[in-house]
Design a protein around this nucleic acid. Sequence first.
DNA 1: GTGCATGCAAACCGTTTGCACAATA
DNA 2: TATTGTGCAAACGGTTTGCATGCAC
Lengths: 149, 149
Amino acid sequence: MRLCETDKFIATCKSIGITVTYQRLIIFEFLQTQVNHPSAEDIYKQIRKIHPTISLATIYNTLVTFAEHNLINRVTQLHDVARYDTNLKMHHHLVCRQCKKIIDSHYPALDRIKISRRHTHGFKVMRHQVQFDGVCSECQKKARIKSNE
Amino acid sequence: MRLCETDKFIATCKSIGITVTYQRLIIFEFLQTQVNHPSAEDIYKQIRKIHPTISLATIYNTLVTFAEHNLINRVTQLHDVARYDTNLKMHHHLVCRQCKKIIDSHYPALDRIKISRRHTHGFKVMRHQVQFDGVCSECQKKARIKSNE
DNA sequence: GTGCATGCAAACCGTTTGCACAATA
DNA sequence: TATTGTGCAAACGGTTTGCATGCAC
């Protein structure tokens, strides 16, 4: 069972062309057990209990590597700096993956989204917002120019 | 016109019980002109051109104050630390305002959301995700206990 | 006059990086 | 053996904070 998972991880590393290391394996296996969206620090503290020699830098490096190869996702893409919004009316966001531009989208159909009680896990939901990830027109243009060079 | 806006700001400050200062006024007025979700640094650089004595700390302090009183919003609530997600299937998030817990919600109706061309502002949309803000059951419980004390 | 806000610099903290050493392929 | 990753510590960058001065009420 375990072996099978390990083999799968090794195969994945080979297919994306990264070295298989013990540290990456234990980080990956740890992540598979997590449902609560841990931070690098969380991961470090947990793994250290069993593997006390692992370094925090390795956790960070590994998370970057995994995310680059889509083995995991960062929960929020807009992570580098805090951004502020003066638009207090309900609205949604288009976020550019490249330049991190945020554009408001007023789209009343999305305002009416309701989540049924069965899916709220006891949450008292107060607000919702839809985020569309993609590439803005300027960045698409830049990419086209680049590919024609 | 300008006077009217200024008066409105003064009235707002009074109603929420914060001191009216020149710095807060210029920051607030600047924010009203912005549609591109500026960062603290952006705001600082722009305002410094006209008011060279303002300090970055004041920008930060003021943004915190404004956000606390709901005059503005932080675009992302989950800002303090990067969080990772091993669930690569399409899903949505319930985020607790208090403890920052994130719970996955698998709700196929939300997966089928489509945004019409008119609303995309030229974006190439690649993914979307709905975020429900609220209070988780544990934090609701804690709040109830506290209010009964 | 009292209390809250500002401005400066230092501290903070999450994250990244340079480098010597170790492990992988 | 050549390459890539690890671990440590130092650097980095966005943000917060302590404190003296200044302004609002």
